[in-house]
Simulated scan of single mutants.
Amino acid sequence: MTSAILQFGTSRFLQAHVDLFVDQALQREQALGRITVVQTTGNAQSAQRVDAFNAPGGYPVRIRGCVDGEVIEQEHRVTAVEAGLHADRDWAAIRELASTSVQVIVSNTGDKGYELSDQDGPELLDAALPPRSFPAKLLVLLHQRYLRGAAPVTLYPCELVADNGTVLRDLVRRLAHAWKLDSGFIVYLGKGCVWVNSLVDRIVSEAIEPAGAVAEPYAIWVIEAQKKMVLPCTHPQIVVTDKLEPYERRKLFLLNLGHSFLAEHWQQHQRPQDETVLQAMSNPKARAQLEAAWEEEVLPVFDALGEGDIARAYLAEVRDRFCNPFLAHRLADIAQNHEEKKRRRMLPVVALANKMELPLAQPRLRAALKLAAARAAQAA
C-alpha cells in the first residue's frame, strides 16, 4: 500500500466532498494519488464503511439540486479510496504508511475530535495499539516519520474549528512537550510539517449504506495559502486564498448558525422527529424567526465589518440550499451535539457584536445561548 493521502474519518461528508474531489482530479491526472481512510472510533456503521471501502468498484455519490434554475441529478462512482483501515486493528500498517508514501493527511473527526485523553502517554510511541485521541495518534505517527527521516507532510484538518490547522498544530506540539520529546522533533512539528487552515462547505444530507452519500451541487474547499504546502489535488471547487477568515465567518454565521437555529426551533416546539430543513423552511413560524435572526442579529455584524454585500449574496445561496427540494437534510442529524454547536456557531456572533460595540440586542441568539448554558449547568 502506497497511498499519497491519509484520511482520518469515514463520514459521508468526506465521502461526498474531499474524496469526490480527489476522484474527479484523478480522472484528469491532477491528484497526488489515491486515499487510505482510517476509522478512529468503534462505531459499527463506520466499521461497515471500512469494509465497503475495501470492496472493489467504489461507492456512489448522488448530487441533487438546482443551479441557476437548472435541475442537477448526477451519480458519481468514487474509486479514489484505495483502502479502509481501522486504527485499533491496523495500527502497524497505518504507522508504516504514515512514515513512507503519505504526503498529505486530511481529517474530519467530528465536533469532539480535538479532545485529549488522560489514557494517552509517551509509552504509546512504540506500542502496538494506538492512542485514544486523534491529536495523540497524529503525534505518534509524525514522531515515527521524523525518526525515519521522511519529509514533513502537509496536514489539512477539515473540522469546523476556526484556524483548525493552527489549533491542531498547537495541540500536537503541547502534547510533544508534555511527553518530553526531543527538541528536534518539536521543531519538525512546528516548522517542518505544514498545518493548513481550511474550510469545507457542502450539505451532505443522507448516507447510502454501506458507503456513499447524497449531496447538494454546491461545494467549496477553501484553503489558506502557505509556503511549502502540498495540495492533495487541483479542482474547480478548491479555492486557495491568503484570507480564510471571511469565508469562515460567512459559513459559520449564516449557514451553520442557520442550521442550528432551525434545530433549536425543532427541539423547543417538539416538531416531528423526521422533519427536514426544507420542511422547517416551509413552516412560516420557523422561517420567520430564522429570517429575523439573520436580518436583525447577524447581517448588521457583517455590515459593520464592511462585508455586508458579499454576506447577503452568500445568504441568498444559503436560502436556495436550505430549500433544495431534493435533499432530506434531517434536523435530528443537525441537532447532534446541539449545545456545543450552538456555542460554536452563535456565541462568536454575539461576542463580535460586543467587541465592536454594536447596538444589537440579539435576543434570539442570546436566548438560545442562555438555554445552552443552563443545560450545561444541569449536566454538571
Rank of each mutant, 00 (worst) to 15 (best):
W179T: 12
W179D: 13
K180I: 07
L181T: 13
L181E: 09
L181H: 14
D182M: 05
D182T: 09
D182V: 04
S183E: 11
S183K: 07
G184D: 05
G184N: 06
G184F: 02
G184M: 03
G184R: 07
F185N: 01
F185M: 02
F185V: 05
I186Y: 01
V187Q: 12
V187F: 06
Y188S: 02
L189C: 04
L189S: 05
G190Q: 12
G190L: 09
G190N: 08
K191Q: 15
G192Q: 07
G192S: 09
G192A: 07
V194D: 00
V196W: 04
V196C: 07
N197D: 14
N197F: 04
S198Y: 07
S198Q: 13
S198R: 13
S198I: 08
S198V: 09
S198H: 10
S198K: 09
S198G: 14
L199Y: 08
L199C: 08
V200G: 09
D201M: 11
R202T: 14
R202F: 10
V204P: 13
V204T: 15
V204A: 11
S205L: 07
S205Q: 11
S205I: 14
E206P: 08
E206Y: 10
E206A: 15
A207W: 05
A207V: 13
A207L: 08
I208W: 07
I208L: 15
I208H: 07
I208E: 10
E209H: 12
E209T: 12
P210K: 05
P210N: 02
P210E: 04
P210Y: 04
P210D: 02
A211K: 10
A211C: 12
G212C: 06
A213L: 15
A213F: 13
V214M: 08
V214S: 09
A215L: 11
A215Q: 11
A215N: 10
E216G: 12
P217K: 13
P217G: 11
A219F: 09
A219Q: 13
A219I: 11
I220E: 15
I220C: 14
I220D: 14
I220M: 15
W221F: 15
W221T: 15
V222M: 11
V222L: 10
V222G: 11
I223D: 03
E224M: 09
A225P: 02
A225D: 09
A225I: 04
Q226M: 12
Q226A: 14
Q226V: 04
K227T: 13
K227H: 12
K227C: 10
K227D: 15
K228Y: 03
K228H: 09
M229N: 06
V230M: 04
L231F: 02
P232G: 06
P232I: 08
P232D: 07
C233H: 02
C233N: 02
T234V: 07
T234P: 02
T234Q: 03
H235E: 03
P236N: 04
P236W: 04
P236M: 03
Q237W: 01
Q237H: 05
Q237L: 01
I238C: 05
I238L: 06
V239L: 03
V239K: 03
V240Y: 00
V240I: 07
V240L: 02
T241F: 03
T241N: 05
D242M: 00
D242E: 06
K243G: 00
K243I: 01
K243F: 02
K243R: 11
L244T: 03
L244Q: 00
E245P: 00
